[in-house]
Design a binder for these strands. Structure first.
Lengths: 341, 341
DNA sequence: GTTAGCACTCAATATAAGCGAGTGCTAATC
DNA sequence: GATTAGCACTCGCTTATATTGAGTGCTAAC
């Protein structure tokens, strides 16, 4: 357990370091005004904090910088959430005032706004098709053996993939099946599609059409296949403005990872509801062991819709980013809730 | 007009510099074996080449490097196209052997392959919807006032956008119009859609439906709107491995530009048929004045389908990249030709 | 026309000196 | 006992200075 004084000093060091990117010395803290002890006293406390693993010294005659553990303590116990600045609120409000019909638009714009407001890299995931309902289904034949399946969700999200048609099935049979599926599956949540298909549709269908089992199977897979949520990135190059990433080699790994969608998804694996902060090596993906990732999921009616995240250096403005993500994720949820009806 | 010896020396310098990224001195050329003159003679020629603006000296006591004009001369007159390496051919063949149904897949994979084979950044444009024909058209209502218009092209490309429905139009009227459009417009090239709509459809439609002019107008715009060709990027971070881009600030501008699609499109404005090399400041976009962009358009039946390009430092392996782009663009054209039927 | 020789240039590297921000420890002070 | 002034010490950073070596341009000889 830290003393009140230690907490004050740790807070001061983290805050200063976040601002300046320079190791913080005892003298500069003493001069700040909010810690009214002499440099010597502060030095003693700093030595103790280092012993506790909360601070580090780049070299003997330098000031202190927070360790991962130090940031963790700061985020868990010391942080003051200042709320979102007036300017930023206005920008976000303006953003949501625009007319947007497609989920993609909302999400990609959100990513842009986030990276602009923070000067870090924003990563926004969504929509997860599974959390929406089917609006319309269509099969457009390309040639004898393949077709494009088009799925429109209640959120205006359009998804398409190619399917291979079973041999020797007639076009009008296909059309019948598609019509029936539209009838039966409209407004059914994706999560229930499989069971509806089996219980209601299968029976009925066999009355109409012969040899439809294969096709039905294909379509079932197509419809029920969990889709990768789309990833929207913005401000990937912002990392280059950070002094700790002046070195090209350090940056390369990070940018490489951002280019690879699967790796990116891995970052978001098992993020819980609400706001989550992962500092430095707390991230499983090695490439970002020098970075922190803050994520916030946005949800509707208890159902998680997607996740928004900010990737920056461990020396990131946690207070600002957390406030902002909290604010934006709630606004997004609200915005999309208006839609669900 | 350059003498044969000058051409040999210029070739040697460009080749060496492309390999080593270091200014090339007279001694090292003399030792290569293919230019059998003493360093002193070569120095004299180098001085002449510099006077002609083909070479530059970073500083007095350094070797020479090619100027933009030097590269230009090299590309126009000296380059030896070695063809594509066996390894690379195999990879490309393997790539086209895969089954791909959507144009997007082909194009995005092509981008990946290109960046892998060259270690530069690849930018692939396509498909331009205008060069294909309409396969299917669908309108899925989202609510009273808006709907998603879905367009499937002959190449399996699916395109969607939201449209605003005119007030007070009935759903069955909408359906009638959509059906009619599908009847009349199937397999019509996008380039002709506007005229077909006016001549054949407009007349006929007014017989069926009242108050459809507005909707028809909206759909006409939707269908005839020239779509931005999609851009696929790969290997954006490869630029970071180049020694001339060790400096983060130089790289930032380039990567920033790559993140912005409109800027990226600007790069490809007015690229002619065939292979085009733009060296350094020959590029209009300032951010890449230290880079060269090589583009090749792929076409079918005289109609340009899209463009593939490689962005690298001016000190780029022009011979290899040109051969590769030539090869790949032709293969892509062939692959897609098989499809058009 | 070609080349050997030589003085010269200049970035890059190495070496040393000085500075200064910051520390840890000790002893005096509150 | 907690706090702080004082001081010696550390060490990265900056600046100044020398050294090196790859490369040049010019001249004179071949």
């Amino acid at each position: 357990m830290l003393s009140e004084r230690q907490r004050m000093i740790l807070t001061a060091i983290v805050d200063d370091y976040i601002r300046s990117a320079e190791p913080v010395g005892s003298r500069s803290i003493s001069k700040r005004g909010d810690v009214i002890y002499s440099p010597a006293t502060i030095r003693n406390e700093m030595a103790d904090l280092e012993e506790l693993g909360l601070l580090e010294q780049p070299h003997t005659s330098a000031g202190r910088i927070p360790s991962i553990k130090g940031y963790r303590y700061y985020v868990d116990h010391l942080i003051r959430l200042g709320g979102v600045g007036e300017q930023d609120v206005l920008k976000i409000r303006g953003f949501f005032a625009e007319k947007m019909n497609l989920w993609e638009e909302v999400v990609s714009h959100a990513a842009t706004i986030l990276s602009q407001l923070t000067n870090y890299t924003s990563i926004v995931l969504g929509p997860e098709t599974f959390s929406t309902t089917l609006k319309h289904f269509q099969l457009v034949p390309l040639n004898e053996s393949s077709a494009v399946a088009i799925i429109v969700t209640s959120t205006g999200h359009v998804e398409h993939r190619t399917v291979t048609l079973p041999e020797g099935i007639g076009m009008d049979d296909v059309q019948k099946i598609v019509n029936l599926l539209n009838d039966k599956l409209a407004d059914v949540p994706f999560i229930k599609i499989k069971s509806v298909l089996h219980n209601e549709v299968g029976r009925e269908l066999s009355r109409f059409v012969d040899r439809c089992e294969q096709l039905l199977q294909v379509l079932e897979n197509t419809l029920a296949e969990k889709t990768e949520p789309k990833v929207f990135l913005s401000g990937a190059t912002n990392i280059l403005t950070q002094p700790e990433f002046k070195d090209v080699d350090k940056v390369k790994n990070i940018l490489d990872m951002l280019e690879e969608t699967p790796k990116l998804m891995q970052l978001f694996q098992s993020v819980p509801e609400g706001i989550q902060v992962r500092i430095g090596t707390e991230n499983v993906v090695e490439a970002i062991n020098q970075c922190s990732l803050i994520t916030a999921s946005y949800s509707y009616d208890g159902q998680s819709l997607g996740t928004i995240g900010i990737l920056g250096p461990t020396r990131m403005d946690y207070g600002k980013v957390i406030s902002l993500l909290d604010f934006l994720s709630k606004d997004m949820a609200l915005f999309m809730a208006r839609w669900q009806k």
